[in-house]
Design a protein around this nucleic acid. Structure first.
Length: 556
RNA sequence: GUCCUCGUGGUGAAACGGAUAUCACGACUGGCUUCGAACCAGUUAUUGGGGGUUCGAUUCCCUCCGAGGACGCCA
């Protein structure tokens, strides 16, 4: 509808007017008295035309009204805005579309047909050196739901977990394993956990709690540090990370091994390309890349003095693999804020490889601070001051946990208090939404018991929808039909947090309708019409909850 | 020190530069012999301070204050 309105406006704006396209806004106003849609064109045109906004708005509204359009009851100019009021018939027609599209195996209302556009999402991707934390959950829920939304737009989405299965951290993990197995300490300065001094740099990376001991038991004591580290990483991935991800309802299509980047010749090819472009040099025994040529603040190391490739090197290969070899049209990386400083060098590297800037989208998610009794607790796996993703779900429940995290925009700095979250999980807005769904299910159950002719959706539908004319009924339809455009916008700006807000508003419209109007009445035709309305509401509620990975229960 | 986020009711958050700043929780007031009261209705803020740009600023610019994060041949 927003696009339709823009087209309508394009038709009535004076041809002599200079380009007015960019700053036109068609939006849904907060206040219902300003209509279902509103536009600020008149303000945008005011300067160019040298006329008052209100005058322009009145002219345009008059032209639009003269043209006539059955989608609208009324188009009026107020305070320089042009407000559009949808006709009741338009609302009823859309309501019927929701029901028609819900037939088994058919398309879903608001969903787009499949396209050939391939999108890649890389999220969570925590190191396989320990269990996932609640903070990993934030990015995980976000990425999972963003992927769902993109799929609803018809994109072909690949969800990938990038496994850092090489490098120094794996060696460190191996050292921890050997330590736990009781072999002699191979690194000076490392003290056993009980007396561990957190001021020793890196010690928290070397000892990571109980699970290390558990993993250590499964590893042959005869292995070298490096071999033990490799083995431990595999075990942690299988025994801790994958189960946690599954429990959290986060889906991945691929688990991509960092090591695999160095097989198959791509590494050599990329290095050759960089050298040919004269972007590589040696200094202090290390190999550097001239990222400053592409806007980075300093040059970066590709191969360390000890001959090992850096994480940066791997990341160049990884992104080249995604874009040049696997041919993704768009690559979205979801990172924690602690990695944000890393973006310029990656972008520089991709520019060096002639990859268009808009191929890569980096979304930064702010960190979650752990709070206990109002005080910040330094998150430390070593000291046990961390909450794993599994603990979080056990304590507050998957639906409440997902809804809670999804409500926040990624750039909100969150404080998380588990005790408080547990206490409040009873009050989590997710139950308000699920309750609306269960209430509808209950009404539908009752209608079936009372009268079999209301049994299936397909039998109710269209013929009685004109009986829907109460304010509460029409407002509920208004909210229902917002979904397609909302999904469209989320797919463009990645504002996933608008989804829980939307579904809350929808549940509120439903509860309000329920309070004021009786669904099952003496009048069979009216009952049929209202059953179709609540059926459509149930469909949309469950579709949105599905997108969020949250259950839509028929009873609770 | 430099760079990134962020600062909005008692609390936690929303708002591509738009109209009377939205939502949830808490608190207070009222509502169940009718489809589920896990519900509904009502009350509760001049958006950290100060300048600027604009018809219009929570939003953009400058400055100050405060919070978190990043500045490795770690990942």
């Amino acid at each position: 509808m927003k696009a339709i309105i823009k087209t309508l406006l394009g038709g009535v704006v004076r041809k002599t007017t200079p380009d007015f396209g960019s700053d036109i806004l068609v939006e849904i106003p907060d206040n219902k008295k300003y209509g279902d849609y509103t536009t600020n064109v008149a303000f945008a045109l005011s300067k160019a035309l040298g006329e008052a906004p209100q005058k322009i708005a009145e002219d345009l509204a008059e032209k639009l009204n003269n043209e006539g359009n059955e989608n609208f009851d009324k188009i009026e100019a107020v305070n320089g805005f042009i407000n559009f009021f949808l006709s009741d018939n338009y609302l009823r027609t859309e309501l019927n579309k929701i029901l028609e599209k819900s037939v088994r195996g058919g398309p879903v209302y608001g969903w787009e047909n499949e396209t050939s556009t391939k999108i890649h999402l890389d999220f969570v991707s925590a190191n396989p050196t320990g269990p996932l934390t609640m903070g990993n959950g934030r990015g995980g829920f976000y990425g999972d739901v963003l992927a769902n939304v993109l799929e609803s737009r018809g994109f072909s989405v690949t969800r990938e977990y990038y496994v850092n299965d090489r490098g120094e951290q794996i060696l460190n993990l191996g050292r921890s394993i050997k330590m736990a197995q009781g072999s002699s300490l191979s690194i000076p300065g490392i003290i056993p956990p009980p007396s561990a001094d957190s001021s020793i740099p890196g010690i928290d990376k070397l000892y990571k709690g109980e699970y290390i001991n558990e993993i250590a038991k499964e590893i042959n004591t005869g292995l070298s540090e490096s071999e033990a580290g490799q083995k431990a990483a595999e075990l942690i991935l299988e025994e801790y990370i994958k189960p946690a991800v599954k429990k959290a309802g986060i889906k991945f299509d691929n688990w991509f091994s960092e090591k695999s980047l160095y097989r198959g010749g791509n590494y050599e090819k990329i290095m050759k390309e960089l050298m040919r472009k004269d972007l590589v040099y040696e200094l202090d025994g290390a190999t550097w890349m001239k990222t400053t040529k592409f806007g980075d603040s300093e040059d970066r190391v590709l191969i360390k003095k000890n001959g090992e490739e850096t994480y940066f090197m791997s990341d160049i290969l990884y992104h080249a693999d995604k874009i040049k070899i696997r041919k993704f049209d768009k690559v979205i990386d979801i990172w924690g804020a602690d990695h944000h400083g890393y973006a310029p060098r990656l972008k520089a590297a991709l520019a060096a490889l002639d990859i268009p800037e808009n191929k890569l989208e980096i979304i930064i998610s702010q960190l979650v601070r752990l709070v206990k009794n109002g005080k910040e607790v330094k998150i430390s796996k070593r000291a046990g001051n961390f909450i794993t993703l599994e603990e979080l779900i056990d304590e507050v429940g998957i639906d409440a946990a997902r809804f809670f995290f999804l409500m926040y925009s990624p750039n909100t700095h969150m404080d998380f208090d588990l005790a408080l979250a547990k206490e409040r999980s009873q009050k989590n807005p997710v139950y308000y939404v699920q309750y609306a769904h269960a209430r509808i299910a209950s009404i539908l159950r009752k209608s079936q018991i009372l009268n079999s002719k209301f049994e299936t959706n397909s039998k109710l539908k269209t013929q009685n929808s004109k009986l829907l004319k109460e304010k509460e009924e029409l407002n509920l339809i208004r909210k229902l039909i917002e979904l397609p455009e909302l999904l469209e916008e989320i797919a463009q700006n990645y504002e996933v947090h608008r989804l829980p807000r939307y579904v809350l508003e929808l549940a509120k419209e439903f509860h309000n309708f329920y309070e004021k109007q009786q669904v099952i009445t003496e009048d069979d035709n009216l009952t049929a019409a209202r059953l179709s309305l609540v059926s459509a509401t149930k469909i949309i509620l469950s579709n949105v909850l599905n997108l969020m990975g949250i259950k839509a229960p028929d009873k609770m």
